[in-house]
Design a binder for these strands. Sequence first.
DNA 1: AGAAAAGCC
Length: 740
Amino acid sequence: MSKSAKWSPKENESKRLPIYQHKSKLIQAVKDSSFLVVTGETGSGKTTQLPQYLREAGFCKDGKIGITQPRRVAAITVAQRVAQEMQCTLGKEVGYQVRFDDCTSQDTVVKYMTDGCLLREVLADPALSQYSVIILDEVHERSLNTDILLGLIKKVFTNPAKATKGRSFPLKVVVMSATLEADKLSAFLSNCPVFAIPGRTFPVTCTFGSAVGPKDLESTGYVKEVVKVALDIHTSEMAGDILVFLTGQSEIEHACDMLFEKAECIDYRYDVTDQSVDGLLILPLYGSMPTDQQRQIFQPPPPGIRKCVVATNIAATSLTIDGIKYIVDSGFVKQLNHNSRVGMDILEVVPISKSEAQQRAGRAGRTSAGKCFRIYTKEFWETCMPEYTIPEIQRTSLTAVILTLKCLGIHDVIRFPYLDCPEERFILEALKQLYQFDAIDRRGNVTKLGELMVEFPLHPGLTRALLKAASLGCQDLLLPVAAMLSVENIFIRPGHPDKQKEADKKHRALAAKTGSMNDFATLLNVFQSCKSSDRPSAWCKENWIHWRALKSAFSVETQLRDILHRLQQKKDFPVETFDGNKSELFRRCLCTGYFTNVARRSIGKVFCTMDGHGSMVHIHPSSSLFDQEAELNWVIFHDVLATSRVYIRTVCPIRYEWVKDLLPKLHEVDAYELSSVAREEVTAEEMTKWESREAAKRQSEVSNEDAMKKLEKRNNETTVSDARARYLQRKQQRQQSKAL
DNA sequence: AGAAAAGCC
């Protein structure tokens, strides 16, 4: 057939995918129902093929097909592949949109995008009127944005009265997920049908170990054990590469060092050119690693050499390495959890879930049968590992998300249809913060300021400070700072002690140049100095600054500037004036967004937070204020880190007068009030109760002095977090094992 | 006296 000669290899390949034989049934299933759950493991072809099938079947007549992904790279690479398969130019019929990169046009009918992008679109067009089909992909990963989109879709489109509002034709929704969550998702979306596509993976045999049991929850013995197991594999198993899962950068470097000492190896750090050694090629892999080093991971090892990649969870979903046949699973992961008891985010090492362990094991079966060596016992699996990973929505700060919902007109944020409901106190905490930032009023309604704030892709506190600066005409001070604080850490601190000293020295010099001992000012200085440099990347290298991170800060700043510029065109954008010097102006703006993060010197180097929790904190060693003895009594800070101590990081000295009038706001309102009046059905009784409490409150305004006394009292009682205790214990064990 | 996971608008 002459037609077949035209087929590209890709096209042939797509017909061999497991999904192909279900094509007509799948199209019919989408036609038959407004909601559909499609399950299929990685490799089934659902992400690339389903949108093409639906386009062929005429679903693009009235609108676009939108497919969401939790990650940027996935959205881009999948769009590239589909454009190739459809033999069209990327950005024409097939396109993608991620932050900073919109590759779509008028012609685009198949649009891949990140879930965050679609959420932004919903804010502008809640009816999603441009789309005929929305496909949510990788729903089992339960990213915060995907979860919110799911809830919004349920709320709007399962209600026939609301579903047609703002639309001229009905919307089709397809939710794609790994097999495990299928029934739950179907139940959530009005018991919609489930379509299962078989996967194409190879069997992976899993074995349990004996090294880590339920009693070893707080120990770091797993680092030693994974090294031992990896060496065992190297000496006794058939050819095939190894992937080791650990939790963080320093741990990975340590494990690589141990492997290098114990095996006949090539370590890329010392010797990549000598390919004559028969042995192990050891490659660390974590997110903040330079990209050219990351690229080495994907190259096949030299002949006769086995590759051993030691990675963080980045290798579980974000990156796929070919040729992996053996997995060594430590059973742990580092996770950022919001702790509402102490009111902060804590980065901690926790056991992975059973489903995550299966995901890790699956990485060995991509190209052939594989083996997974779990270093923990069966008992550990049964008693310490939860069935599923707790979804992000249940363990992060919800302030920004709640503001988004409020701006979408969803007042009852407690009874929003969450697939998994966050704890009520998390929601209340978010409401309280929004109230403190003047984003919502006492009745839980979004204020004018709140409507401005939701436009910015930033934490609300940072946005609040930025808007204050804008109203005072000094946005140029705050825009770079906001950008710098919303990208990954820009200061490089190498593992080698000598280089560490060198880096620290450079960083201190950057701080000193501002002449003000204010970490926010240092960020501004780094931003401006690099930007005005002739050779910015060389400047970064010289000063131990992450060029990649700083580059993204440059783009973020431009984006924030554009958003701000657009909002300032509005006629009711607030305008204020201020008399005083620049440094005070800068710091006063910061106070507007950071008065929830105020600390006061207590005794010596110990500070005490003024947020109502009264935690004892120290200034982080990376801060320019770390060794300042000066009369430094009041500070604001950007974030908290719980390691050997509870540290505040990115710190700025302030005067008490600047926050005096703001601090009472931290105590004046009970979060329950914000939520109960926000609920759609408020009983008359509830209303009177609330009114009378309001009246009582007005009569007895809590004075600052009273609030301070209360905090002082709490200081003596509390409150170093559990995370710190665990850290100390681990450190001790580490030292003991070192001594042996 | 001492330190950072992944991802997204």
